[in-house]
């Protein structure tokens, strides 16, 4: 077509100019990644190293005589709850439970769901439709409903919470992984690789995996937020992490019962949940925008 433009000429058409991000917005996006990333890092460090490094009391076994201390009391910067346990300590230990559940569920989801989705798309045909039908069944269940029933069947405990939450993480990741793989499979370079006789494992490892991993990792960031919230809901309903072991969800539930007297006890874990979810959402969204170059 290009009679008048020499081959290999770098074209500068006005179209990309129109939709492109300005320097300021790309700077702001980087800033968002750095800030939300730092908050996530800070959360992880505080929750996992805090108990060993910070001078905080045990999150359980508090004295009832110390119950309901207000924030700023000596030794209890955020006060104590109805059982006399230190709120800050419970927040940190609760965060550890939430993050552990989030990370493990997402790893399980990515490993199993990601593989199933990619293989399903790669195989195509009958195998693909059988796998997708099976996932359709799981996805038909509203996630929280399925998780509640599974959690009750398995019984409340940290590992069981992880198992129950994986039941909705795996099919969700599988769908995304399948869609991403299908997209890659339709690319001309992949067809070229197939035509040139590359073996299937080479196509998968060289072409498919590197192209779907960025999409899956950004989804995992958003998935962290979803899992942390669902874990909170489950523990709030008494089906997740069982007391006395703290979790933000069961802290909110306990605090809810004396909400009118001590509203702060509801607020602390709520704020912790909000900050965690917000920073994972921001991190996921801005990384996604960065990757897709919007």
């Amino acid at each position: 077509m290009a009679v008048t433009s020499p081959p290999g000429s770098a074209t500068l058409s006005p179209a990309p100019l129109a939709g492109s991000a300005t320097r300021w917005s790309s700077f702001r996006r980087r800033l968002t990644i750095w800030i939300s990333g730092s908050v996530v890092a800070l959360l992880v460090i505080t929750c996992y190293l805090g108990p060993f490094v910070l001078p905080i009391p045990s999150p359980v076994g508090g004295n009832v005589l110390d119950s309901g201390l207000s924030p700023g009391s000596p030794g209890h910067p955020l006060g104590t709850d109805v059982n006399g346990n230190d709120v800050l300590s419970r927040l940190i230990h609760g965060g550890r439970s939430s993050l552990t559940v989030g990370v493990v569920v997402n790893i399980i989801g990515l490993a199993i769901g990601g593989t199933v989705g990619a293989i399903s798309a790669y195989l195509g045909g009958r195998a693909d439709s059988i796998i997708m039908r099976a996932l359709d069944v799981l996805i038909a269940f509203p996630s929280l409903v399925l998780v509640i029933v599974l959690a009750q069947i398995l019984g409340p405990s940290l590992p069981n919470t992880i198992l129950a939450l994986s039941a909705f993480s795996i099919p969700a990741v599988a769908r995304i992984s399948r869609a991403a793989t299908l997209k890659v499979m339709s690319m001309p370079y992949l067809q070229a690789a197939e035509l040139s006789g590359s073996p299937w494992w080479r196509i998968l490892s060289r072409h498919v995996v590197p192209n779907i991993v960025p999409q899956l990792t950004t989804f995992a960031m958003l998935g962290m937020a979803i899992v942390v919230v669902t874990e909170g809901a489950l523990s709030f309903l008494g089906l997740g992490i069982p007391p006395p072991r703290p979790s933000w969800g069961n802290m909110i539930f306990e605090a809810q019962q004396s909400m009118s007297a001590t509203p702060l006890l509801v607020l602390w874990p709520s704020i912790a949940l909000l900050v965690t979810v917000l920073s994972f959402n921001l991190l996921g969204e801005s990384i996604r925008d960065e990757v897709t170059g919007r």
Partner: peptide
């Protein structure tokens, strides 16, 4: 108006229509 891609031909007429982005 004749030119290669990027010669500004399209931009120049889009300016006449007020269709250029705010930047």
């Amino acid at each position: 108006i004749i030119g290669e891609s990027g010669s500004g031909k399209s931009v120049s007429v889009r300016a006449l229509m007020g269709l250029l982005p705010p930047s």
